[in-house]
Design a binder for these strands. Structure first.
Lengths: 122, 122
DNA sequence: CTGGATCCTTGCGGATACTG
DNA sequence: CAGTATCCGCAAGGATCCAG
């Protein structure tokens, strides 16, 4: 059994907030790709794959607003815009990566549980 | 600067999946409360606070399906149903707690960045 | 190339009423 | 007490067109 300590409501709320912030459909994928280095808009778009440009814009604006990403515009023609993780963005990658690691190691257990549940409630 | 290693798409997808699984409005709050020990339906309801009974049911079914929670029915009158974290559920609490810890420590930085962004784009 | 504006579909989540 | 069933509003997200 793992350590047990009381979980205060306020802490859980904070956790819930950040998880909803980061738990939308595209945020972690975008942050993950930017974790390998700065990318231009369309580079990012094809690197992530399957994301509409509206959602990429929305996601990037949100990340920029919260200080996870910087947006650099080169006033050339055609325009060029680079997106890069801030230090805060890289730091976020650590606990998110840990959760990802956990996910990778436990997908099978979840899939098994799911199959069993679906079998029982057929 | 923090360590940089390539983030493969498949891994990012796995992270994204688990984050969306756990990133809905109530899941972590419910799991957090259950982290302190088993609870009955209405105990959980009032412990979480603000959750409708429909969403509590939905959330619990999902957690049960994925093997994070067990559901124990006592065939008494009135009925009594206990919910408890499985080992998998407790283990999930670890990386989620780490992310929560990160969130607690960095909320101020995010709030500052957000205020700055909103100020510039007033 | 970057991304704003618009339309449209979908599903989450809340409120309420009913049941064993 | 512990749910199920139903209706409904709203916002997320996709597709498309347009602009600098």
């Amino acid at each position: 059994m793992l350590p047990r300590h009381p979980h205060r409501t306020e802490d859980c709320r904070a956790i819930s907030e950040i998880l909803q912030r980061v738990g939308d459909k595209w945020t972690v994928l975008v942050v993950g790709k930017l974790g390998d280095g700065p990318l231009r808009f369309n580079e990012l778009r094809s690197a992530v794959g399957g994301i509409s440009q509206k959602m990429l814009t929305t996601t990037l604006r949100g990340l920029e607003r919260d200080g996870f990403v910087t947006r650099t515009v080169f006033p050339t023609i055609p325009p060029r815009v680079d997106y890069e993780l801030t230090d805060l963005g890289y730091e976020l990658l650590v606990p998110v990566g840990a959760l990802g690691e956990w996910a990778r190691k436990n997908t099978e257990r979840v899939k098994a549980a799911r199959a069993r549940f679906d079998g029982l409630h057929a």
